[in-house]
Amino acid sequence: MSLGQHVASNLPFLRRYARALTGSQTTGDAFVRATLEAALADDELKASLEGGRIPLYRAFNKVWSSAYLEADPEQASGEHEAGAQNRLGAITPLNRQALLLTTLEDFSAAEAAQIMGLQTSEIEALVAEAVSEIDREQATSVLIIEDEPLISMQLEDLVEAVGHEVCGTAATRTQAREVVEKEMPGLVLADIQLADGSSGLDAVDDILAIAKVPVIFITAYPERLLTGDRPEPTYLVTKPFQEQTVRAAISQALFFGSSRPLD
C-alpha cells in the first residue's frame, strides 16, 4: 500500500476526530487539510506518516495545538463555529483531546501519550479530569432513536447514569415524530437504519427542521456518513460501542450545544 493510500484509509477517522474536537465539520476539515499540506512541505514529516495512525494524529495535533493558541473567535464563520470557539476558551482543551483519543478513536493511553507528546500517567489524569467535567454537565432530556431493544435499553441506562433524562425512545421515524410532538429533546442519539426500513437520517432531519438540537449518530454503518458527499454529522459513534465513547460524545455534543442539519 502506498503512503497516499495508507493516509487515505485513515482520513475519515481523523476527520471524525477533528470535527468532534472543534465542533465543526468546516473547521475540522480545515485543520486536516493544514496537516496534509504541512506533510507535503516537510519530507521528514511526510516520511513519518508511513508509521500509521499514530504519526498522522500526532502531526494533526501539532497543527491544531499551534493554531488553537492563536485562534481569534471573531474570525469564526457561522453561529455554530463562533459558539464553539467561545466555549473552547472556557474548558481545558488537553482534557478533551485525551478523552477523545482514548474513547472515540480507541487509542490506548500510551498511544495517546505519543500523539500528544505527554506521559501515559498524564493522559490518564487528563481523562479522569475530563470525566469529572462530563459529570458536571447540565442535565438534559434525551431522545433515543434505535430499533434494537437491547441496545436501546443499554443507551437508556447509560444516559440516566450520567444524570440525564430519557424523554422517549423510538424504533421508527414515525415514533420519533410522536415523541417530539410531546416534548422536544435537548439531545438525540440516533441509529441510521430503523425497524420499518425508515431512516434515522430522515428522523433527525425532521427534528432539526423544528429546532437546533445536538445529535449523536450511533451506527454500524459509519461509511454511509463519512463519504464527503454531503455535510457530515459532527458526532458519530461506531457500533459496537464502548459506553465511555458514548459518554464522551454526549459531553462534546452538549458542550458545543448545537448540530447542523444533514441536508
Rank of each mutant, 00 (worst) to 15 (best):
G83V: 04
G83W: 13
G83Q: 09
A84M: 03
A84N: 10
R87Q: 10
L88Y: 10
L88H: 15
L88W: 14
G89E: 07
I91G: 08
I91N: 14
I91L: 15
I91P: 01
T92V: 05
L94Q: 15
L94G: 11
N95G: 07
R96S: 09
R96P: 04
R96K: 10
A98I: 15
A98C: 15
L101Y: 10
L101E: 12
L101S: 11
T102G: 01
T102S: 03
L104N: 04
L104Q: 12
E105Q: 09
D106C: 02
F107G: 00
F107I: 00
F107R: 00
F107V: 00
A109G: 00
A109I: 01
A110M: 06
A110D: 08
E111I: 06
Q114K: 14
Q114I: 04
I115K: 00
G117M: 07
G117H: 07
G117N: 07
L118N: 09
Q119K: 05
Q119L: 07
Q119D: 08
T120W: 06
S121W: 02
V127Q: 06
V127D: 00
E129S: 06
A130V: 07
S132Q: 10
S132A: 09
I134S: 08
I134W: 14
I134F: 14
I134K: 00
D135R: 03
D135M: 12
D135G: 13
